[in-house]
Computed example of a mutant assay.
Amino acid sequence: MTSHDTTIDDAAWASPWRRRRVGEKVLLSVSLVLTALLTPPWPGCVLVACLSVFLILGPARIRASLLATVMIAPVTFLIIGALPVAIHLGGDGWGIGPVRINADGATTALGLIAHGIAGTLALMVLATTTPMVDVITWLRALRVPDPLLDIASLTYRLLFVLLSTTLAVRQAQVARLGDAASWRRRWHALASTIGSIILRSWQRATNLQRGLEGRGYEESLRTLSPRRARSWPFIGVSLASVAGVWATCWVLA
């Protein structure tokens, strides 16, 4: 498995929606996020989640396996964060010993999870279709200060340096150990390779710094941005889709 198979940025570069204007995708994604936050879990969040998944897997042509992979961490965080809302000590409700779960707490926790998942999927509409370089170029056009954009760009690049180094070390570890190694041997090998990952990442980050110095970096890391025509049909369909979610919520309320 390579970084090309696992990173959202690579998928965004390959997506046909990469040719669309960033502002149009931001409008769609932010509209869906606000809808997920302001509408009830049913049917608002469910409709936003279904619409977002359809857009990501359908018109944007993002692999379902990649979407599932990048959603594991947010969903896990949401579930862990909702547990204190559903679980309490003492009082009425179902449970074991002093740990109790009542209907109101469980309903509130499920609502929070629904809002979080729907909002995350709505944000993925932008993340999986827009490379970071396009986002930074768009923010620069909005006159966001260059130092802030350069810090964001370098941090993002260094994260991928760490990811690619980790994957390379992982491939070497699998090739050396195979599938028959014991868990004890695997954990020992993992502990011994953490230092290698850090050192290799530091070396590659140093090479990135030297490359910037050789390029003559002084003020900002500007990149060329292709000119993209505004698509009024895309804007109209996006607004109509969001309006349809709100209309459905109003009818079923």
Rank of each mutant, 00 (worst) to 15 (best):
A141L: 09
S225C: 11
R185D: 07
T155W: 06
T166V: 11
W187I: 10
L208Y: 15
A181C: 00
D104E: 06
Q173D: 06
Y156F: 09
L66Q: 04
R100Y: 13
L83F: 08
G178V: 04
C45P: 01
V169Y: 11
V237C: 11
L37A: 07
L149E: 03
I79G: 10
S201L: 03
T137D: 13
A60T: 05
T166E: 04
R100M: 15
I117P: 02
I72W: 12
R21D: 04
L163C: 05
C249W: 05
R61T: 01
V85E: 01
R227W: 12
W138E: 15
R222T: 08
S31R: 03
T137K: 07
R210L: 08
L28Y: 04
A175G: 13
V161E: 02
S238D: 07
S29R: 00
W17C: 00
S182W: 03
A73T: 10
V161L: 14
T130P: 10
L177F: 10
R18K: 07
A205I: 08
L123N: 09
L221S: 05
D134C: 12
S31T: 08
R20P: 02
M1T: 09
R21N: 01
L67H: 00
P131N: 09
A11C: 03
H115E: 05
I96C: 08
T248M: 13
L28Q: 01
W246M: 12
V99F: 15
R100H: 12
V133C: 12
S15G: 00
T155Y: 09
T193H: 13
P16W: 07
W94P: 11
T248S: 09
